[in-house]
């Protein structure tokens, strides 16, 4: 059974505008899937439907065997098991770094202050930011903030991770420090769904690449096939545009 199953999912913002058109795909346990495509193609929306941050009007999404689309009361519990990293970090600016990492652990998982703090420090060490534990998010660089955001997701012991354009809001010199953490995670066998334009990252760690355009999944292929010989014209055009330099 796959970790994430997306079946015939459609979403409309209003009757005239359909953002997702009959999308079907799956992510196996331990698999790294990169979702790419031109802006406005619906890739960010698709990844947000996986933990029901965006509701859908048709289709079914299953995470770890649980139906997310019909879930109501247990939704917070499921979300706590699905790590999510946002384009603009979305750290809580009024809380210190360590408090950012403890909030979910104490409130949602019911861990004690001490246990949560210990776990937080362990994860901060992992992303190389132990020295910044007592600072506020605004005192950190974009790259550092995004690494904290990854740590904030990891302290919850997630069964899979969703990344929504994790490096698009970063200055170029900070992109690699974030990608390094992600590569590390992938190597450890974390199930990951990553919306990104970083084709280098895709080539390095992805198992599969999903290409979206105008709300549709146009191509869903093994990495080698996608970069070697993309079948659709749209994917070919997209690749030639972003790989030409």
């Amino acid at each position: 059974m796959p970790m994430i199953t997306i079946e015939k999912v459609s979403k409309w913002y209003n009757p005239q505008f359909q953002v997702l058109k009959n999308c079907t795909t799956a992510v196996e346990k331990g698999e790294v899937v990169v979702v790419c495509g031109p802006s406005g193609s619906g890739k960010s929306t698709l990844i947000k439907t996986v933990n029901a941050l965006e509701p859908v009007q048709a289709g079914t999404i299953m995470v770890d065997g649980l139906n997310v689309t019909t879930m109501k009361k247990d939704l917070p519990k499921l979300r706590s098991r699905v790590g999510m990293v946002f384009q603009h970090f979305e750290l809580f600016p009024h809380l210190k770094i360590v408090e950012n990492l403890c909030l979910g652990q104490t409130i949602v998982l019911g861990r004690s202050e001490d246990a949560a703090k210990a776990k937080a420090m362990k994860m901060l060490e992992r992303v190389g930011l132990t020295a910044h534990a007592q600072k506020y998010p605004g005192q950190l660089s974009g790259g550092q903030q995004q690494r904290v955001a990854i740590a904030r997701a990891l302290v919850m012991d997630p069964i899979c991770m969703l990344f929504d354009e994790p490096t698009s809001a970063l200055d170029p010199e900070m992109i690699n420090e974030v990608l390094d953490v992600m590569v590390e995670l992938a190597k450890e066998g974390m199930t990951m769904m990553v919306v990104t334009h970083e084709m280098g990252f895709a080539k390095k760690v992805a198992n599969r690449v999903i290409f979206m355009d105008a709300g549709e999944i146009v191509e869903d292929a093994q990495k080698e096939d996608f970069f070697g010989h993309p079948r659709s014209d749209r994917a070919q055009q997209f690749l030639s545009k972003i790989l030409s330099h």
Partner: peptide, 30 residues
């Protein structure tokens, strides 16, 4: 308080009341 903050609160598993109490209102209050 930006909508992304609410999303981030939901994403770590907080419910509506907890998002309001721990994420939105402390920032709004300041």
């Amino acid at each position: 308080v930006p909508r992304g903050q609410v999303m981030a609160g939901y994403a770590i598993g907080l419910n509506y009341r907890e998002v309001m109490r721990h994420v939105v209102l402390p920032q709004a209050f300041r």
